[in-house]
Amino acid sequence: MKLHYEVPGDDLSLAGRASTEVKRALGRLGIDPVEIKRVAVAMYEAEINMVIHAGGGTAEADISPERVTVVLADHGPGIADLDLAMQEGYSTAPESVREMGFGAGMGLPNIKRNADDLHIDTALGLGTTVTIVIKLKTG
């Protein structure tokens, strides 16, 4: 089944709503709490990234007994150097965002650590699509 969310790009205080909703949905489905946490951490990071860097976008969670696939798509500036962005501590977030405790350069590495599969499709000036797969042992 698929769950679809719009992620507004103008309010950082609202960022994380989609991942919270997905988390609650997975709880209703009886998914293992450890796996829910992996989805939550990975999706939350990606959602925050989308708000900070790309002005929001859409989030979709496709849930099957075997896996949870989260696709976050935006029409933001794209990622110039993906290898660099994957390094811990590297960040292009502005100071105003860092002051709120975000933008520590841990986002993408953290997603990778929690995902079984991570695919990033990015084009400068066009946008980024992040696909996160978390396999479920419950299924």
């Binding site: 089944m1 709880g27 209703r28 489905l29 998914i31 709490p33 849930i63 007994p65 419950t138």
Partner: peptide, 23 residues
């Protein structure tokens, strides 16, 4: 231990069907 009081059904496939209806 956890209390799965919010779970829709112990059977995940059934829970999914219920969640689709819910949406």
């Amino acid at each position: 231990s956890a209390r799965p009081a919010l779970r829709l059904d112990p059977d995940m496939l059934k829970a999914m069907i219920m969640m689709e209806e819910m949406e």
